Simulated scan of single mutants.
Amino acid sequence: MRFLRLRVALCGALAVLIAVAVWAARRPAERPPDAVTADVTGSPHPAASAGVGALPQPSAARSSGADPGGLRYSFDFDEGFDGGSDGTIADTGGRLPLRVRRAQGGTITAVPHDGGLAVRFPPRCEHYGAESCARAILQSGPADFLNPGRLPFSYGASILVKSSETSKGANVVQKGFSVGDSQFKLQVDGAAGRPSCVIVGNAGPAIHVALASRTVADGRWHRVECSRGDSLLTVAVDGIVVGRTAIPSSLSIANSDPLCIGGKGTSANNDQFVGAIDDVFVTRGA
């Protein structure tokens, strides 16, 4: 009888352990505090469907440049642009909508560029990182399909930055975080205005940076591209490689974080980009 009772008790404990394991597997993963949830299939956000703060979508005539292995944002709109609303902006393939996120009155405006439009972010704040600084970024929902893993890939944008618009931190494109996560990022940090490409793998905290040898903070448009090969990360400005760093061939980047343009979030120390951005892209194959 004692053996039977022990067997029943063990069976009951096993049932509890199985139930806990199932609950843990179904529990949604915790997300960074600045992340938002959105439809990554390209369907309109509920706010846009209801006609509340909806932003215009890119011209269909200009959508043929979509990359089936990645995505591109041209910011060329058929109608007016309201960067102070909370509507959505589609990429040229309609796969990953972005939302305008802002704080302290920050807005994003449309400016002419190369026969179309680009987006300009809030002006430089006198006190970098202060809570009172105007902030605004573009952010998607979870973008798992952009994870390159160990494969070659490239990402970048066309940017315009004046010498008076540089700061301690200015993020152009970012997916993921450098602490307890993985990441790829393009930034223009420091008074010198030299762009750099940053990647962090899932296996450890090592931060790999390819820093450009030249500035882009001269008030002119420049195309900056980051490329990850098998064991090399490079940064190119206007088609010329101006910086590189060796990376482990085993480095893998995979996270469920959103794609952010113009900053990493809306907190006070958000690495707000100051200037204009156009033609943001992420592609598979370096």
Rank of each mutant, 00 (worst) to 15 (best):
G53E: 15
P44K: 09
G12A: 12
D34M: 03
A236D: 06
L71S: 03
V36P: 00
R95C: 10
D39M: 01
C260E: 07
R120T: 13
A212M: 07
V52L: 14
P58L: 04
S164E: 15
V282K: 10
S249A: 15
A192H: 07
R244N: 12
L211P: 07
S59Q: 09
S85I: 09
T166E: 06
K162M: 08
G105I: 12
P97C: 10
G149Y: 13
R124S: 10
L251W: 01
Q174I: 10
G105P: 02
A118G: 02
V224P: 03
A157P: 04
S196V: 04
W23A: 15
Q183H: 09
V188K: 00
S231C: 08
V209R: 12
A236K: 02
G69M: 02
R27G: 05
D78E: 13
R284H: 09
A15N: 03
A136G: 09
G65I: 15
T283Y: 03
P46E: 09
A29T: 14
R150E: 14
I261M: 07
G201P: 09
D67C: 05
S231T: 15
N171S: 14
P112N: 12
R26T: 14
D238P: 08
K185Y: 00
T234W: 02
P68C: 01
P97M: 03
R7F: 13
N202P: 04
G285C: 00
